[in-house]
Design a protein around this nucleic acid. Structure first.
Length: 259
DNA sequence: ATGTCTCAGGGACTGAGA
């Protein structure tokens, strides 16, 4: 079973690239982020024609998450408010579904803009709510994968120039502490666990030729429970899509499980 | 490099967000 996560930066602008991705890799499940549209304009039929069901949580212009799957998704839930009290998030950032007995979460963590600002505080409180959400999810399920754009580079190895990025957004100690607390729930960063010393990135700013210079960060992950990770054969970050025409600024992360 | 890309509003370009 092949599971992927990809921030597509608008699903309508990335329709051709998403089609190529699905045809090339033939994943069973894809967690999408930043679909940037309401459910009514989501290309559901195009994906059905390609053999994928869609579970969608969208909104106009910003954010939006989805889960594509070969098998029909079950127990689809949108947002965190069913599991986390006092956190009614108007932004479409979390969706979950059960596919082939695996609880799949697709998450788009807030960017935070700049340390100390209002959006940064929202990011930190969002992450605390998400931790509680995942805790409940792990309580109910043994096989869980939480794919997403976490907008955090967990360690210096995940950053092309750690000195330049020190205390910058995506790299602050506060964000890294929040990410570590997600792993402390009992989740494994599949790519990092398999390749402790590899430096490979999943996001490169469009500006300044950052991709050509490989000036990137690793901020997209497939987090798995130990039960699921024990079935993980491999995890990789695909460069094809980021290298192609009109790319998303994120690369897909793909893992293979013996399920 | 204040560097690029996407969206909405409005009907060309600007601002927000990343």
């Amino acid at each position: 079973m092949k599971i992927a996560t990809w921030n597509v930066n608008s699903i309508r602008a990335r329709e051709a690239q998403l089609t190529s991705f699905l045809e090339k890799h033939n994943p069973d499940v894809v967690c999408l982020q930043e679909i940037k549209c309401e459910e009514s304009s989501f290309p559901r039929q195009i994906l059905l024609d390609l053999g994928y069901h869609s579970a969608v949580s969208g909104q106009k212009t910003y954010n939006g998450v989805a889960i594509l799957s070969r098998e029909k998704p079950e127990e689809v839930t949108i947002g965190m408010n069913k599991d986390v009290e006092n956190f009614d998030d108007p932004q479409a950032r979390v969706i979950a579904a059960t596919i082939s007995g695996i609880r799949v979460v697709s998450a788009y963590v807030p960017n935070g803009q700049e340390p100390g600002c209002e959006k940064f505080n929202y990011k930190l409180s969002w992450l605390k709510a998400f931790r509680e959400y995942l805790k409940q999810c792990l309580r109910k399920n043994d096989l869980v994968v939480a794919g997403g754009d976490y907008n955090i580079a967990p360690e210096d190895i995940d950053v092309h120039d750690p000195k330049k990025w020190q205390n910058k957004i995506l790299c602050t100690a506060e964000e890294r502490l929040q990410f570590a607390s997600l792993l402390e729930l009992g989740l494994v960063d599949t790519y990092r666990e398999l390749y402790p010393d590899n430096q490979q990135f999943s996001w490169w700013d469009y500006r300044a030729g950052n991709f050509q210079k490989n000036a990137g960060l690793r901020i997209d992950f497939l987090l798995a429970t130990p039960e699921l990770f024990s079935l993980c054969d491999d995890c990789s970050i695909s460069m094809t899509e980021r290298s192609g025409e009109k790319p998303s600024d994120h690369a897909p992360v793909i893992a293979e499980f013996a399920v």
